[in-house]
Design a protein around this nucleic acid. Structure first.
Length: 862
DNA sequence: ACCTCCCGCCACTTC
DNA sequence: GAAGTGGCGGGAGGT
């Protein structure tokens, strides 16, 4: 009997692989293209070897799924339903025969054998089941094909409970790959709608500020690490403006749910979770999301009070379910991020790059986060203005409202809906890869526009605007809120509601304080964790990311540090352009005022052992350099060339840019008071991975353009060339600060030993990382140069907050930052140590204040 | 011990 | 009331 199975299985394989047309016609539902089927089957039966020799189950060591016995198991579990299906239709077998076959199998095998012949747990996984499910249908079904899915049929053919099919279908539904037609029946759309859906999800995710939420969660995790159990509630506490939001299912026009039952459970359903999960990937850079963060965000959005462990576990379970299906769709891939805490499961987006939707009307969802309308902060007001035309903010998902609108639109849209017009959607994202040249051109244009606009703007408002605000100049939509942003940046009295504030900061942002309090200009560096990092790997706040967003376009580059090589590779081309707009937008949302910093600091650190914050403005005056729990106030005048020199030389010594492993330091910093002299004295290995953010005094005009050149940097095609240097010169020339043809050395000090990306190249880190890092350091150099040139601009290590700075006077707070291996004393040791030959150590040592998390991303087979 | 996630109970919804 | 859906969490297989 077992032989019969193998024979039938081969028949099955042959049919699948060749996928003959007659065969397709026989089936009620369209078969997937042979390629896919083949891959699926390959997975099911990969190189199993001599199938002609039926294995004896006893001889096979258990546990190896690809042993002969495993083949048998697979045969039974996977092939049998298919065989039955096909043979049924061919009239060779009927159901009774199948049953009989199974029965015979059972009889022929002993209890133990039969037990072993049963598919293992793995072979019954949802992922594999989903593979089989997907193999039944074409990616892009034609309209001629009958794409109805009968759940009963499928369940029977796949030999699973219908319950499992629901799991799959629900996720597919969230991507609009299927839609429910009626009881027990679904329509298969394949991937026709996928790109639209992803675009929409990305947009909604951005609007929902998932990036910031991720950021906050990571920050809180870090704080939790620092402060122990005390802050547990903070760690799990939902964050962001969406605390009270119940984001609902995002629908596409023409894809509305037809069953009320579905609608009634939408809010909790796997569908919504799935969409949110996908959103997290789409708004993250790199597109890696850990289950933990995802679960927290999803929980946070539901109910703040339901933060017990069981809820969390349940969420994780559901996320696994979703992830399995998404993995089968090849949209995500399982990876692991390794940090100090240990190895954490995460998933990496491997689906199509999702470009910002340029045609909002066609992809506008009928749903928006319900909280949108609730926001009243200036920030939210500003945010509202970003999407005035869409009117989405005015909607909440009320079924009656939505249905009213949809019913009128639906029919018409359905006519044009993707399922019936594959060619239309096929031009979308799936072909994104082919649009790279245009993307690059677009990117270049954007950068150019930015540069020009910024230069102009800089001259006019140099002393008034933050660099971040200026960066927005190229973003049309952001411009609308610029007055707000600008004024808020300058108006210390403008205090952001605490609940919203943390989410506003996408990056550590230097803020120019009006020199009303003292003659000293201050740069305030907010907590890096609010920076754009978001994207990043689970609970691995990356200083690079957090610190540089607005200045060095860290969004697009720093995250590279955290990417796997594969990811970096895939991102280099398409990612930058695609993410640029979003990144810029995020950058422009930064609003800082001293009070905000203080308030925010208070809020964030309230339960923290880090209580260093001087939360009155007086401190700004009285304290040379005032410590902020989440940032620094650094008198620019004190950030002397001297200090920078020390830093740079140190970096130089330490082989700075080396970042061989996926090792990242935490962005969390800023709790250590740092004076200029301290900076000077400190050796900062952390600079290895710490992008700089620098402050520009009103009189300094050279630095700002450099800052604004981040986009240029990002588009720079030559990773070896020092982009910052070129940009610096270009900018200076552009601004008329130096005559054309004159080249300014970024850093005379370092000139003899140009900061070379070589160390980075030597490392496993990709060129992107190297470029990024090289750029960062060059920027530092540039800043130094400006300072040297007598401009009062100063370079302030942004994440230097994460820099190992040993406080002159021991403060309790700082203790928290010396938990990293080596302890407080290690600072001096590290400081005095020569360049770290290995970038990893350098990084680790450098981040004495940060949760020294060694982050490694490994990819697993799901 | 922890990670994964299958499995099926059972509440809710629809027919 | 039966059938369809799907939330949910126990607990077992896998690592």
């Amino acid at each position: 009997m077992r032989y019969n199975f193998f024979i039938l299985f081969f028949l099955f394989l042959g049919q699948e692989n060749h996928s003959s047309e007659p065969q397709r016609r026989i089936l009620k539902t369209p078969l997937k293209q042979s390629a896919t089927s083949y891959s699926v089957l390959t997975e099911i039966q990969p190189e199993s070897g001599p199938l002609t020799t039926p294995p004896k189950s006893q001889e096979v060591p258990p546990g190896d799924p690809w042993t002969p016995t495993a083949n048998l198991k697979i045969l039974i579990s996977a092939a049998s339903p298919e065989i039955r299906n096909r043979e049924q239709k061919k009239g060779l077998l009927d159901r009774s025969e199948i049953v009989e076959t199974k029965h015979c199998l059972h009889e022929h095998l002993s209890g133990d054998e039969y037990e072993k012949s049963q598919p293992s747990r793995k072979e019954k996984s949802l992922g594999l089941l989903c593979h089989k499910f997907l193999a039944r249908y074409p990616n892009y079904p034609s309209t001629a094909e009958n794409s109805d899915i009968c759940l009963d049929e499928v369940a029977e053919e796949l030999n699973v409970e219908r319950r499992r099919i629901y799991d799959i279908v629900n996720v597919l539904e969230s991507l609009h790959m299927v839609s429910r037609l009626a009881k027990n029946r679904y329509a298969w759309y394949g991937r026709h709608n996928l790109n639209r859906t992803l675009q929409t999800l990305k947009k909604v995710g951005e609007e929902n500020k998932y990036t910031q939420q991720i950021e906050m969660i990571k920050k809180r995790e870090y704080e939790f690490e620092l402060d122990g159990d005390k802050n547990e509630e903070m760690v799990t506490k939902p964050v962001g403006p969406n605390e009270h939001s119940e984001m609902c299912f995002v629908e596409l026009p023409g894809m509305e749910f037809r069953a009320a039952s579905v609608n009634s459970r939408k809010d909790k359903s796997l569908r919504v979770m799935s969409q949110k999960f996908v959103m997290l990937f789409l708004v993250s850079t790199p597109q890696i999301v850990s289950l933990e963060v995802a679960a927290k965000i999803l929980i946070g959005e539901d109910h703040i009070e339901d933060l017990d462990k069981s809820k969390f576990k349940t969420k994780i379970r559901r996320l696994y379910d979703i992830a399995n299906v998404l993995s089968s769709l090849e949209l995500i891939k399982k990876v692991h991020v390794t940090e100090e805490k240990g190895r954490k499961p995460a998933f990496k987006w491997t689906g199509p790059e999702v470009l910002p939707d340029t045609k909002p009307v066609t992809t506008t969802t009928s749903l928006i986060p319900s909280n949108s309308a609730k926001s009243k902060s200036p920030k939210e007001q500003c945010s509202k203005n970003l999407f005035p035309s869409r009117g989405k903010q005015s909607f909440t998902r009320h079924p009656s409202l939505i249905k009213l609108v949809k019913t009128t639109e639906s029919d018409g849209r359905k006519i044009h809906s993707a399922p019936s017009s594959p060619s239309k959607t096929s031009t979308n994202n799936d072909e994104n890869s082919s649009s790279l040249p245009s993307k690059m051109a677009q990117l270049a244009a954007i950068c150019k526009q930015q540069l020009e606009g910024q230069s102009r703007e800089l001259k006019m408002k140099l002393t008034r605007s933050t660099l971040e605000c200026k960066l927005t100049s190229s973003d049309e939509s952001i411009l609308k809120c610029e007055p707000n942003t600008t004024s808020s940046c300058q108006t210390p009295s403008l205090v952001q509601p605490l609940g919203v504030l943390p989410l506003i900061h996408n990056s550590v942002s230097p803020v120019m304080l009006p020199q009303t309090h003292s003659a000293i200009s201050y740069a305030i560096y907010l907590h890096p964790s609010h920076a754009q990092t978001v994207t990043t790997l689970q609970s691995v706040p990356c200083p690079n990311v957090t610190g540089t967003t607005s200045v060095f376009d860290a969004n697009s580059k720093i995250p590279f540090n955290q990417m796997t090589t594969e990811e970096r590779d895939s991102n280099t081309g398409e990612g930058d352009a695609g993410n640029l707009v979003a990144k810029e937008r995020q950058v422009t949302k930064i609003e800082f005022t001293p009070e905000r910093c203080l308030k925010r600091s208070q809020a964030l650190q309230e339960n923290s052992s880090i209580k260093k914050c001087r939360s009155d403005e007086k401190s700004l005056e009285d304290v040379y350099t005032t410590l902020f729990p989440s940032g620094y106030i650094i008198p620019l005048a004190q950030c002397t060339q001297h200090g920078n020199k020390a830093i740079f030389s140190n970096k130089e010594k330490s082989g700075i840019c080396s970042l061989p492993h996926m090792t990242y330091s935490s962005p969390i910093a800023g709790v250590v008071p740092v004076t200029a002299s301290e900076f000077t004295a400190v050796n900062i290995p952390a600079f290895h991975v710490t992008p700089l953010k620098f402050m520009v005094s009103p009189s300094s005009i050279a630095a700002a353009p450099v800052v604004n050149c981040s986009c240029l940097n990002s588009s720079h095609s030559n990773p070896v060339q020092n982009p910052s240097s070129s940009i610096l010169n270009f900018t200076l020339q552009h601004l008329g600060l130096i005559p054309a043809g004159v080249q300014v050395s970024p850093n005379p000090v370092l000139q003899p030993v140009p900061i070379s990306p070589k160390p980075e190249h030597a490392s496993p880190v990709s060129e992107n990382v190297s470029l990024q890092q090289g750029r960062v350091f060059k920027n530092e150099s540039q800043i130094t140069e400006c300072d040297l040139n007598g401009k009062s601009g100063a370079v302030i290590p942004l994440q230097q907050t994460t820099v190992p700075v040993k406080p002159k006077e021991p403060q309790p707070v700082t203790e928290n930052f010396f938990r990293t291996p080596g302890g407080p004393n290690a600072i001096s040791r590290f400081a005095s140590s020569p360049a770290d030959s290995d970038g990893v150590d350098g990084v680790s040592r450098g981040n004495l204040f940060a949760p020294q998390r060694k982050l490694e991303v490994s990819e697993d087979q799901l």
